[in-house]
Structures are given as structure tokens and as C-alpha cells.
Computed example of a mutant assay.
Amino acid sequence: MPASDYVQGLRDRVGTDFLLLPAVTAVIRDGDRFLLARQRDTQRWSLVGGGIEPGEQPADAVRREVREELGVDATVEGIVGAYGGPPLEAAYPNGDRVGYVTIAYACSLSSDRFALERAELIETSWVELADLDALDRHEWIGQVLQDAARS
């Protein structure tokens, strides 16, 4: 997905220098399974989420991200945890460097029929923790899902 107007405005000023950005992550669970989504840009599995826009409450941001990426409404049930540091840092092909600090929210969905009409996601899958190591995934999601499984 293209950068938001806010991030693009920052990029216009700082170029590809490192930006630390606030984000949200949706932890969607069905019993012992968690919903993962494969991203179009990296082809890797991750959790649904994205950046918080200026003036936006984090819980509203996670609901917006779920709606944008899956086409369904989410109910926020609580906070799983907050995550950041090197595991959430990335360099994009255009040279932009970024680090995210994300608040992970436990969420439930209004439907399990997803509309992946946006170009951001390729597919979704329900996965058990034991199956994570077999997936090409963003490593940091393992910690988030372990924390969610304990709650």
C-alpha cells in the first residue's frame, strides 16, 4: 500500500532516513488458531495491521486496518501487548528505512468471509502456533501470538 499523505510529507523532508512510526496489529483468534495474511509486497505471512494516522485513536486504527485489508468489521477486545525494536525495523526497496512500534489488539470479526480486494494481501490462513515455524513469516509475530495464547 502506498505511504499515507502524512508519511509521504515526512519523506519529502527527510528522504530515506529512518522514521519511527506508530502502528497497530490485529490478533484474530479462533480457538487455538490465529488468522495470518500473506502480504503482496514481501510474499511473507504476517498479522493484519498498519499505521496510525495523525489524530486517530489506536483502537480506531486497528478497526480501520481490518476493514481495509479484510473487508469486514472488527470488535476490539483488549490489548495483547506493545512491540518494537529491531524485529520491527525494515528497509524498503526504494531505500526508505522505518521502524514500527505497534500495539497489538485482540479482535473478533463480524464475518469469516473476507474481501481481499485491496492489493495489499494475497491470501489468509488460520494457523496454529505449532505451524508458525514452517511459514515464511515476519519473525516478530511469533512473540505476539505467544503472548496472545497466554491471555
Rank of each mutant, 00 (worst) to 15 (best):
P2A: 12
D5G: 10
D5S: 14
Y6F: 15
V7K: 05
Q8K: 10
G9I: 04
G9S: 13
L10C: 04
D12G: 03
V14L: 10
D17F: 06
L19R: 14
P22F: 06
A23Q: 03
A26P: 07
I28L: 10
D30F: 00
D30S: 14
D32S: 09
R33S: 15
T42F: 04
Q43I: 04
R44E: 00
W45D: 09
S46T: 12
L47K: 04
G51A: 13
E53Y: 08
E56D: 12
Q57S: 09
D60A: 14
A61K: 03
A61Q: 09
V62K: 00
R63H: 02
V66P: 06
R67P: 01
R67C: 03
E68H: 13
L70W: 08
G71L: 10
A74I: 09
G78H: 11
I79M: 09
G84T: 03
G84Y: 12
G84F: 07
G85L: 10
G85R: 11
P87D: 04
E89P: 00
P93V: 06
N94R: 05
D96K: 01
D96W: 07
R97M: 11
V101I: 14
V101A: 06
T102M: 00
A104T: 09
Y105A: 01
A106S: 14
R113M: 02
L116W: 07
E117N: 13
E117P: 00
E117C: 05
R118C: 01
I122C: 11
T124V: 15
T124D: 06
S125A: 15
S125E: 13
W126D: 10
E128F: 01
E128R: 15
L129R: 12
D131V: 01
L132T: 09
L132Y: 11
L135T: 13
L135Q: 08
H138I: 02
E139P: 04
W140F: 15
G142R: 14
G142P: 06
G142H: 08
Q143N: 04
L145F: 08
Q146P: 00
D147G: 09
